[in-house]
Design a binder for these strands. Structure first.
Length: 225
DNA sequence: TAGGCCATCTGGTCCT
DNA sequence: AGGACCAGATGGCCTA
């Protein structure tokens, strides 16, 4: 696969969590995401991130005052700076009328900067897991959509979705035709310039990335973008 | 080097 | 209250 998993410079959460002094409540309630995490690979990531978070812990008072997570410039390394880059400002104009902390972002009462930091790291972890599961779903979808690989690379996400949509349409039309009905869908230029093309050749079908491990899929017509 | 695609971080919003 | 979901921002990698 083209976009193989890689050690992302920002993927520092696990190491940072290890560096952080874990509160009791976190180890008891945090629950779910310990083992078999894809982030195990980041354990070998350099320790700049942990240095950063140690700095953050020391700068807890500063964070408390600003309410921000961002680096205040203490990091001298580019990777450190990337971790704590400034964020968009549009959020401040968001229409969350029930903000409990006035014109800034919401602030929990009685929650220390360290605890907020930890919650953010846990939230990042959950978001990563969510995106990983989403990517697994994309991968499953790619496997069940017969297609001809372009340049020996896998389908992008948008290609996968577009192809899936057209495949469903094409199969629906095929069913309609078999029933002697009028095909339900038309593929025209307005339909994102994509038209499904049935691949008749058996050889071509074998070029598709169809599952080869005895899956239940029968030979099905292929569609192209 | 520009553009496409991606992973990740982040804060807001919604839902349970 | 906390987790899920979402979208914006950002930087890395790859290719034309």
């Amino acid at each position: 696969m083209k976009w193989s998993p890689k050690i992302h410079p920002k993927d520092h959460t696990t190491a940072a969590l290890q560096e952080l002094e874990m509160p009791q409540w976190a180890s008891n309630e945090g629950g779910g995401s310990e083992a078999a995490s894809p982030n195990q690979m980041i354990l070998c990531y350099d320790d700049q991130a942990s240095e950063y978070f140690d700095d953050k812990a020391e700068d807890a008072d500063k964070i408390e005052q600003t309410g921000d997570f961002y680096d205040s410039g203490s990091g001298s390394d580019e990777q450190v700076r990337r971790v704590c880059r400034p964020r968009r400002t549009a959020a401040s104009s968001s229409s969350s009328g029930n903000s409990s902390s006035g014109p800034g972002r919401r602030r929990r009462c009685g929650v220390s900067a360290r605890e907020r930091n930890l919650r953010r790291l846990e939230s990042n972890e959950r978001e990563r897991m969510r995106m990983h599961s989403l990517n697994r779903a994309f991968e499953d979808l790619r496997r069940v959509i017969p297609h001809v690989k372009k340049d020996n690379r896998s389908l992008s996400k948008i290609e996968t979705l577009t192809l899936a949509k057209n495949y469903v349409k094409a199969l629906t039309n095929a069913i309609c035709t078999m029933r002697g009905e009028v095909p339900r869908y038309q593929f025209n230029s307005e339909d994102e310039n994509v038209e499904p093309v049935f691949v008749i050749s058996r050889d071509q079908e074998q070029n598709n990335n169809m599952p080869s491990d005895g899956d239940t899929e029968e030979s099905v017509p292929s569609v192209c973008l």
